[in-house]
Nucleic acid binder design. Structure first.
Lengths: 327, 327
DNA sequence: CTGAAAGCGCTTACAG
DNA sequence: CTGAAAGCGCTTACAG
């Protein structure tokens, strides 16, 4: 493995000088610069990131802890995180917690071992007093602010309202909301509040079907969907708090020979790529993932610079109309 | 940040001794061990992985370069890689190439900078002479062996045969195969060969619809599906070389009021989680992802130990029958 | 503009 | 069984 020493020898300069040239720090003569660049090229040199991080005061590593990367929301989110952070010179370490609190503790320790610059944590267990990050800043996405963790969320309440208003505008009279419920209050719960408020204000029949956490984990909502629809016979509009639910709902209704959007109109949430994989395509509420990820980067940097960070940052959502809610 | 020095001070031992105790290397007295453990606990110490990797001859890092992590095949694969490698003490660095050769070159350089133990590369551009990994072992998954890169693949030919035989056994007389086509020969091309062979041997009408790469990239096969089905009017069995295709095919056929499996039977490939998200559920060919990932770990370790590694490792597949091909 | 030295936090022979 | 020293590959003041 070629090291900075080899470059120093080759170019006839001291190691420190080479380092300064490579990092463009301080005064540099053109001649030396050229020599170093030539040597680097000739020896095909790549600096050792671990050595760099070790000697610098802070690393370029970002720990990303998510429950899974198979759910389309998370695969999209992680994908966006990876590319935006890389573009800014950070390196992400993606870690999968499977929603298990002990795993999460382990992974946070792993982040600490890596001396990460920051941690993005998407967790249900975020309240835990056991999460000790020793001064490493933590940002959560779509989780509430707690324990000093900065929280980046979309306007879930508004999302719920938009979806519901849309269904009403499309003529629905009997609404159902299918939502998940975890161990703690989640920002996504606000979607249901938005649903309830709009339905109430518009005097529309409405009910809520709660799916326990295991449905979310298995990404298999069939039973809860069946349950909800046998209980509520004359539903004509359903707001699913995730596209994955909406997808499976459409599959279920197709099986039951119930027509979407004719008999029942549907709105999903997240606007993930699967929205286009069903017949009909799924109308959905879009989170501005790109902006949310960008905000997380800015917050980490602000924190690093000792600036104040908003504890909770809320981003507007929009409705993307497709076939599943058409007239 | 607490360091090994703090542990040494606290426990009244030398830094080297503490290191030996932490790594369980060489003779250790119970008394000293206890002292160190107590100090570690008291100071909430976590060793600095970068320092460890720097002083060791090899790192515990594995670079994982994939075209994307949104496609269900890759999200499943990456998820499996992350969890199996972590269990073995490795840390994966997931990198997304977006199928771009320049990105891939950059990412390989990034791997080199990280002094990774090995690279898992899922690339279309694997033939490139420009991939210089400087002695770092590379394993490809579902790509052919080339340039000394170890190749782990499933038995695609067998998969194609299984799928086709199944369709024929289910009574199909006019078969279509929808497949992707990249810049280079891919193991997945063997699926089509298996299709052709079985169809020929059984004297069944058959044709192949090739989807160019851009369809794969966009995960949007609608046009090619439409094209294939307007060209071939009396198809009654379709082998899709990915579940994503099958998913969208089912959506398309539903739109066209063509019944699956009554009018057309369908078999997908990869057996990803989306197979259960459509009506009907998708019959699919299952790759033994877990075993393939396991094999990659073993190969890296074997390489490290100077052992010989099979250049190409082929894993058997199986057909998972669901509704889309039912009688 | 450049070099020498100290330091980042570990590990690893080598003595004892 | 343990300590002291050298080294991993960088960066960063500090002189000059």
């Amino acid at each position: 493995m070629v090291t900075i020493k080899d470059i120093a020898n080759k170019s006839g300069l001291a190691v420190g000088t080479v380092s300064r040239i490579m990092n463009n720090r301080g005064y540099i003569s053109e001649k030396s610069k050229k020599k170093v660049e030539d040597a680097m090229k000739e020896l095909n040199y790549q600096p050792n990131l671990m050595a760099q991080n070790l000697s610098k005061t802070s690393s370029n590593l970002i720990g990303v802890i998510v429950p899974n990367i198979e759910h389309p929301y998370f695969s999209t989110l992680v994908s966006e995180i990876e590319s935006q952070y890389r573009a800014k010179g950070f390196q992400t370490i993606v870690m999968i917690s499977y929603e298990d609190e002990n795993n999460e503790k382990e992974l946070i320790i792993e982040c600490r071992k890596n001396r990460v610059f920051g941690i993005i944590l998407c967790s249900e267990n975020i309240f835990s007093e056991n999460f000790e990050t020793n001064g490493i800043p933590v940002i959560s996405i779509e989780r509430f602010h707690v324990n000093g963790i900065t929280s980046i969320i979309c306007d879930n309440f508004q999302g719920g309202k938009l979806a519901t208003l849309h269904l009403i505008n499309q003529g629905c009279k009997n609404l159902l909301c299918i939502c998940g419920k975890g161990k703690i209050d989640m920002p996504a719960d606000e979607r249901v509040k938005g649903f309830n408020e709009v339905a109430l204000n518009n005097n529309v029949n409405h009910s809520v079907q709660i799916a326990t956490y295991k449905f979310y984990q298995s990404m298999d909502y069939e039973k809860i969907i069946k349950n909800a629809l046998t209980k509520n016979k004359d539903i004509d509009g359903i707001f699913c708090t995730s596209d994955v639910q909406a997808m499976q709902l459409i599959s279920y209704l197709s099986r039951e020979k119930i027509l979407v959007p004719k008999d029942i109109k549907i709105v999903g949430y997240d606007d993930t790529f699967v929205c286009k994989w069903s017949n009909p395509n799924i109308t959905s509420i879009k989170q501005p993932i790109k902006k949310m990820v960008k905000a997380s980067i800015e917050s980490f940097i602000a924190f690093k610079n000792g600036e104040n960070i908003d504890q909770t940052q809320v981003f507007p959502v929009e409705l993307v109309a497709r076939e599943s809610s058409a007239l």
